[in-house]
Design a protein around this nucleic acid. Structure first.
Lengths: 148, 148
DNA sequence: CGTTTGTACTATGCGTAGTGGTACACATAG
DNA sequence: CTATGTGTACCACTACGCATAGTACAAACG
């Protein structure tokens, strides 16, 4: 299974589901149009409550990451479709988290270049190549899968 | 005041205090040996409970960021003194957060180069110059002028 | 001694996360 | 039409963390 959750972690289980699915999409494991497991089925596999899965799906739908069709199922949405809701806010949050990382790195005594390198290495592409011209984050390789 | 907290935010107040003080140190606003306000005094200024401030101070002491002397006060510790406790764990957490940022950036439709640039801009040094050889994060020379 | 400081403790309120169970609304297939 | 599969909406309940409030204790210092 491409998803695992751990109730002992401090991050909420439903958030782990959200993050996991987003990661699977960003890495190309899930592609636009792919169908996600039904809430009850996924709940069974993860040994959590179906309400928890539902909460995750609702958050993902709110972020336009998936599309939900009542009675049919949930599907991976067709790409970062335009500007998701709260775009500005989320970018700001991203910047805040970046600053927080730098501060944390400082208190760990990490070298600035090391931090930069760590960040590059954390990218979904996960390669040392530079090549970085203009294509979207993740899935550098077979990026030509716009809609499905 | 170099510290503000907002109880409406989802991040806990005591954590905001921790982060704020760490930021103040990383930016050079607070320097090793500087004395922090007494718990009750800071609690008054921030309009929070003294227990909350105490919790923040305890966390900061656990991370070797400050030093506490009963009856005297709390002081900024003398630099990232060697390896703080949970060093390995915290580095791993840092890497997790970096991956999370990349994933979030992907779903916001951000360009990889843009993300890299955002990250560089979020550094405590906050300049566009490169110069970044080998010195620790933040406080390169004199340049620390970030708010907190 | 008394003051200043951090710490410890108890009690209380509050919000969120998670579970468990049930019921409803919609889509599709027979 | 019914039956099934799907997401959704409730409800009740538990557990935990955050924060407050008040009080008391412990260590340092003059």
């Amino acid at each position: 299974m491409w998803l695992r959750v751990d109730p002992r972690l401090s991050v909420p289980v439903y958030q782990q589901v959200v993050d996991g699915i987003k990661a699977a999409i960003a890495s190309g494991l899930l592609r636009p149009g792919d169908r996600l497991p039904p809430v009850r089925e996924l709940a069974l596999e993860l040994t959590i409550n179906h309400n928890t899965v539902a909460k995750a799906y609702q958050e993902l739908e709110r972020e336009r990451v998936i599309e939900v069709i009542r009675g049919r199922g949930t599907f991976v949405a067709a790409r970062p479709s335009g500007r998701p809701p709260d775009y500005e806010e989320r970018v700001k949050t991203l910047q805040d988290e970046m600053r927080r990382i730098w501060i944390e790195a400082y208190h760990l005594g990490l070298d600035a270049d090391t931090v930069q390198e760590m960040f590059r290495a954390a990218a979904p592409g996960a390669k040392d190549a530079k090549e970085g011209t203009g294509d979207a984050v993740g899935r550098r390789g077979e990026i030509a899968d716009e809609d499905a």
